[in-house]
Simulated scan of single mutants.
Amino acid sequence: MKLGISELFPAAGPRDGRWSLDAAALIEEIGYNSVWLPEHVVFFPSYRSQYPYESGGAQEVHKTLGVYDPLVLAGSIAAVTTTLRIGTYVLVVPQRNPIVTARQVASVDRLSGGRFQLGAGVGWSEEEYTALDVPFERRGARMDDYLAAMRALWSEEEETSFSSEFVEFEPLYCYPKPAQKRLPVIVGGNSRATLERIVSYGDGWAGYSRTHEDIKVFIDKLSVLMDAAGRDMSELSLKVGRRSKGKTEKDWEDDRAYIEEAMRIGIDEVVVSPRIGDENYEKDMRRYFEIVGG
């Protein structure tokens, strides 16, 4: 089974930059398939926006109080690893200029030797959009245009131009190109719009905190839409995020049961957050892999 790690690599406290790079090298050495980096540009003392996933909500997000820019950290991780896949889970694409983002992503893919995967989502925090002076409304339509524009910029064509509702640029040169012929865009979310976005622009799904029944329903709907569009499900990499419910070996055995069933119904990689503390990080990460990934 493919097992990815999504650790909150905060930019404060004991998990500083050196810790993040050492942890990534350790994750690779143990045998995990990939590491995934979250994105929030800024955090807030309180949120009006509704957190769409687990209980604890936005106030739990607030406790993180900062994460490294995922593309900057991805480039650093690429320098200290050789086989580990690196991705974002997820980059909030509509908040970023698409030309700048396309260039940054292609740079990371080149520097990593083609190991990067762009997990992309629309985000949920209106407060963050407001702080960045980007409209929260119609962020899904904005993201579709941005993904289409980035695909054009990553193409082998030397000259690129683009025209849509949210993106407009005259012929230009955008380099570097990604190392991968088709850089994987893994679309995050659980909505109908997510399904359509995967079919139109994506190479996979990045679900989060889904029950097995939720996963099965989503995959069934996606299969119908892919078939209607003339695409095959084998083109997609289906991932789901799993946050461990606790820190004991019994909790980790529950993770294994969840992962095994998720893979039985069509998921090819589970991205886990195992709630492992700093004190015995290496020992516990190795033991977690023995129980969950062995």
Rank of each mutant, 00 (worst) to 15 (best):
V108F: 05
D109K: 07
D109H: 07
D109L: 06
R110W: 00
R110N: 06
L111K: 00
L111P: 03
S112D: 02
S112N: 04
R115S: 09
R115G: 11
R115Q: 11
R115Y: 11
R115A: 10
F116W: 01
F116R: 02
Q117P: 00
Q117V: 07
Q117K: 03
G119D: 12
G119R: 08
A120S: 14
A120L: 04
G121A: 09
V122P: 02
G123Q: 01
W124G: 01
W124L: 07
W124F: 05
S125W: 00
S125D: 00
S125E: 10
E127I: 03
E128V: 05
E128P: 07
Y129H: 03
Y129F: 15
Y129C: 05
Y129I: 08
T130D: 13
L132F: 07
L132P: 04
L132T: 07
D133M: 03
D133Q: 11
P135K: 04
E137A: 14
E137S: 11
E137Y: 04
G140W: 07
G140L: 07
A141C: 00
R142D: 06
M143G: 03
D144H: 10
D144W: 00
D145E: 08
D145Y: 06
D145K: 08
D145M: 07
D145S: 10
L147P: 06
A148D: 13
A149M: 09
A149K: 09
M150I: 11
M150E: 05
M150L: 09
A152V: 14
A152G: 02
L153W: 09
W154V: 06
W154D: 05
S155V: 13
S155N: 11
E156T: 14
E157P: 01
E157M: 06
E159A: 11
E159C: 08
E159P: 00
T160E: 04
S161I: 00
S161W: 12
F162H: 14
F162W: 14
F162N: 06
E165A: 14
E165M: 10
F166T: 12
F166M: 02
F166S: 10
V167M: 07
V167F: 07
V167Q: 07
E168V: 04
E168F: 11
F169E: 12
F169G: 11
E170Q: 14
P171Y: 10
L172T: 15
Y173C: 03
Y173V: 15
C174Y: 03
Y175E: 13
Y175C: 02
P176D: 03
K177G: 13
K177E: 12
P178W: 11
P178G: 13
